[in-house]
Design a protein around this nucleic acid. Structure first.
Length: 562
RNA sequence: AGCCCCGUGGUGUAGAGGUAGCAUCAGAGACUUUGGAUCUCUUGGCACCGGUUCAAAUCCGGUCGGGGCUACCA
């Protein structure tokens, strides 16, 4: 029996349902994701991709990947591969529907000629400055260009010569003839073509005139038979123009629907800001794990499932909003908890000697790989007289609610024994070693007499431990809204602890078998993944996110009280 | 200022004339060989004013607030 509760639908799915009901587009759904190949994809794009491709998938429709490459000055081939790689990594397959806006340059030109013939477009000789001047502003209407009333013949001739390369960059443009007094600035005779003697990554030197976004985009959608053209809110004011071109041309017209793009706290999302960070050397590159780029997140240890689940769960709406990064972190924990194998690793090692354990003895304890997934099986973890534990797991003078190890206190060592601390050995006031004893009766971690222990600690056997470098990543900025601060440049608000590198970490032997990008959990610490920098000699691990940590919260509260 | 879009717990969203729901966060508890996970409970919201109606988050009018637009970028 399936639940009768109908899942709530966002406004876009409601529109599609209605279109399907009325048969507006023959009941089909065909969407597209149209990135400009001039940068790397980030989580904001992931949302757009999930909206466009996810909805098409859900309705049994198709989706296109289309590179919107109408500006040869800004676009480069190198971005195309990275964008495709990222989208594939997100788990989407556009099959054979990979297109380029530039594929349609010929057809667009013909359409432009159509419009000229209809008296709806004209060649303007004004300079960029003059055009700006005559456009007016939001409160004052613009004025007609002196070239606005050229004859169709003259326009046709001029436009053809523009194409033929007779004019220099900026000398002439082709404009739509709409209304210079229109309250919507986009309708004040928008430019359709500009002259750019530049080599295009796809069409080479074939063209010296290139179409503007507003002219090109609707045509691309129309040519590809897109049904629902889903884009971000800033194109709302462009929709009348999108419609105008297609209506004047009398061609198939998709519907453009706008939704709010994703904003996240404690990070920046714009290409320009991201570029500033990369160019300024403030991060290690586009794949720096602190960045919200797809590559960065992959390197950080985010899974495809966690990102897609996040994008689905934040919803779609028309209000500008900022999602708390905590929710992203929740989504990645949620997925990784179910899928990640567990290991033990000590980030800040404190040596511990078990006085009543023989020096040459080694035992192997069976550890559960994933308590959430029985099929993940078990592994053996070696135990011996000298171990490492986490420095934070011992306090000489424990405050209230600190359940971990302290002098005279007994805790459990995960999968091994109950351990009691006898003494903390100090050198120059610093604790350098703990002397402890085990209760042999608690072999495996259970007391036959049923006595309980307040906490369970992770540990690593000294002689079996692997050394590892661990990169602890945290939020990139110290404030939720780094761009909204008065009198502060966002680059000065970078969290100095957004990356902390620990070099003397000790991890259990099984970590050796992991490969680059493998994700796992260090019990009690968080989720990590293997950095591709890892070599035979040097294990490098990246922390994706910490586990939820009630003790850290209590600690903060206690500090506040002081 | 002109035009366009939008206001539902702290945050993100559902609700389409009839008991304001979900998720997250926060708080409390249960359970626990991860202070993880899981489970239970609790706090907390319809921007404001007026109108229509037996009944308004929902429809209408206004006010206030937020965002977008003034590139030969996309």
């Amino acid at each position: 029996m399936v639940s009768t509760a109908t899942p709530s639908k966002d406004f876009i799915r409601q529109i599609i349902d209605e279109d399907n009901r009325t048969g507006k587009y023959g009941g089909g759904v065909h969407t597209r994701f149209p990135p400009e190949p001039n940068g790397f994809l980030h989580i904001g794009h992931a949302k757009a991709i999930c909206v466009n491709f996810g909805i098409a998938e859900e309705y049994g429709g198709k989706y296109n990947l289309r590179f919107d490459d109408t500006n040869p000055l800004k676009e480069e081939d190198i971005y195309i591969k990275s964008i495709m790689d990222d989208i594939k990594w997100l788990g989407f397959d556009w099959e054979d529907r990979l297109y380029y806006g530039s594929d349609y340059f010929d057809q667009m030109y013909d359409y432009a000629v159509d419009l000229v013939k209809k008296g709806k477009a004209y060649v303007d000789d004004l300079s960029a400055e003059e055009i700006k001047e005559l456009r007016g502003n939001v409160t004052t209407p613009g004025k007609d260009s002196p070239y606005r009333e050229r004859s169709v013949e003259e326009n046709l001739d001029l436009f053809n010569r523009m194409k033929a390369g007779e004019f220099a960059d900026g000398e002439k443009v082709l404009r739509a003839k709409i209304d210079m007094a229109h309250p919507n600035m986009n309708m004040r005779d928008p430019i359709m073509y500009r002259i750019l003697h530049a080599t295009h990554h796809n069409t080479g030197d074939k063209w010296c005139i290139y179409p503007m976004y507003d002219w090109a985009h609707g045509l691309e959608d129309s040519i590809e038979g897109i049904t629902h053209s889903l884009c971000s809110l800033e194109f709302e004011n462009h929709r009348p123009l999108y419609d105008w071109f297609l209506i004047e041309l009398g061609v198939y017209r998709p519907i453009q629907i706008e939704f709010a793009r994703l904003n996240l706290t404690y990070t920046v999302m714009s290409k320009r800001k991201l570029l500033e960070l990369v160019k300024g050397g403030l991060v290690s590159g586009w794949d720096d794990p602190r960045l919200p780029t797809i590559r960065g997140m992959k390197k950080r240890g985010y899974s495809t499932a966690s990102i897609r689940n996040f994008c689905d769960r934040i919803g779609i709406a028309k209000v500008n909003s900022t999602v708390d990064i905590e929710f992203l972190e929740h989504c990645v924990r949620d997925d990784l908890n179910k899928t990640s194998p567990r290991f033990m690793g000590v980030l800040n090692p404190l040596k511990m000697v078990i006085e009543n354990y023989p020096e040459d003895k080694v035992e192997e304890f069976e550890a559960i790989n994933n308590p959430e997934d029985e099929s993940a099986g078990t592994r053996k973890v070696p135990f011996s007289r000298v171990l490492y534990i986490e420095r934070d797991d011992f306090m000489e003078d424990p405050p209230k609610k600190f359940y971990r190890l302290a002098p005279g206190r007994e805790v459990r060592f995960r999968y091994a024994y109950f351990v009691t601390c006898k003494e903390a050995v100090k050198e120059n006031g610093e604790i350098v070693e703990l002397r402890c004893t085990i209760d042999p009766e608690t072999h495996g971690g259970n007391a036959p007499d049923g006595r309980k222990v307040k906490s369970t600690l992770h540990w690593v056997s000294e002689s079996h431990a692997l050394d590892a470098e661990v990169r602890l990543y945290d939020r990139l900025f110290t404030v939720p809204d780094p761009l909204g601060q008065k009198d502060a440049d966002f680059k000065d608000l970078i969290n100095p602890d957004s990356l902390r590198i620990l070099t003397s970490c000790k991890v259990e032997p099984a970590v050796r078998d992991l490969k680059a990008f493998d994700r796992f959990q260090f019990e009690r610490l968080g989720y990590f993944c293997v950095d591709p920098d890892t070599t035979e000699e040097n294990i490098v691990l990246n922390r994706t996110v910490e586990l939820r940590d009630p003790w850290a919260k209590i600690q903060k509260q206690q500090q506040r009280k002081k």
